[in-house]
Write a protein that binds this DNA or RNA. Sequence first.
DNA 1: AAGTATACCTACCGATAGGTAGGTTGCTGC
DNA 2: GCAGCAACCTACCTATCGGTAGGTATACTT
Lengths: 213, 213
Amino acid sequence: MQIQTPPSIPPIEARDRLVAAALDQFTRNGYAATSVRELCEAAGVSKPVLYYYFKSKEGLYLEIMNGIGQLFDQRVAELSSINGSVRQRLLHFFTGMFDGASDNLPVVKLAYMIYFGPPQGAPFVDFNRFFDQMLKIVDSLIVEGIELGEILQCDRKALVWTLVGSFQTIQEEQICRNEARIGHDGLVAVINLILNGVDPNASHVECTRSCKI
Amino acid sequence: MQIQTPPSIPPIEARDRLVAAALDQFTRNGYAATSVRELCEAAGVSKPVLYYYFKSKEGLYLEIMNGIGQLFDQRVAELSSINGSVRQRLLHFFTGMFDGASDNLPVVKLAYMIYFGPPQGAPFVDFNRFFDQMLKIVDSLIVEGIELGEILQCDRKALVWTLVGSFQTIQEEQICRNEARIGHDGLVAVINLILNGVDPNASHVECTRSCKI
DNA sequence: AAGTATACCTACCGATAGGTAGGTTGCTGC
DNA sequence: GCAGCAACCTACCTATCGGTAGGTATACTT
């Protein structure tokens, strides 16, 4: 069988090389600005091979979208099964999502590009469900925290958006900067600062304010 | 002069119609997936007219990018000239940026698309300066707040990222959802929740915690 | 040995891309 | 009145697009 593998490409299957090339090229250039010719050159195959495995450019794109969805679902499942205080579970959830994203930066970068960017003629993929699911999980944990007296009665919606919003922007910093100015440790500091602000046992967390009673 | 203006387009100059069409089409479809033909059809002119005014597709794109930069700079200047407490100035700054963005959603949407998306063959435009400038302004205000005793000594970097991160995600919600689940009032609630958490005079803002001294 | 399936190939298709050549019309200034 | 300019036009250019037709080579099954 003729295998026209350029020496620099490891001997993986043509199909996998196409997926890898597509992830890379779609992240770098976007859907519309990435040609089938470029994808096949990067994968070291001819164009009919792409059509043989994926039926179309769009088919290859959807293959990658399905992969992203599965990655996210798997990660969320992994992070929903620890015990501890609500604060511990919130920290575990956020840092787990953050580290998972940092280990898959190209995939996450593509997901953000699609979330914020225009379709570019690509088939529609609704990434809102990722964000929505995060809001839901964090809200559940906050409800539990309030019920257990770990979190002050406060504007729950504001607290959810503060936590998820901070997380989101720190994650975005990893994607949009070559050298991120804040990372895992900064995320932990942010989550702690927020939760310290709504902690009923404030003296427990180094309250420096002089309380007026 | 032959003006082939479709009846639905108000009689504004061809150049302005091209800019408006380009903003709309680049936001909807992205740079690469928007053809010169589509732009000219939307503007009601023939292709040479675009080349007459902007020299190229790229030239039209850069015209819009310059406009975005100027809008942002003007807005920041407007919001930097009020008096009041640090909290009042922070609220004014964030709500002013938010309302300014809400009044120019297509422009902000395009800016986000470019910030998160790939170049798509478009000339590079560095939108980091917008985000960087926000970080800087908020950090200055927090430094002042700590000096004035309005804000507790705390992890300043964490506080900056919490405030700007929450703002950013709430603004992103306006862009990515047809019906945003949080808006101006939610933003105010979030900023207040964060600042309440680092307020030295906690009882002043309805502290419900029982302090242990 | 022959037929079938898989995994690839080259050559080519019609359509559209970004862009230009060469032109027309109306207005303005001299 | 005419030259020059601004603001537009049609017709056309080359290059590349997404995709297919028709094929080859190898391995496997009968």
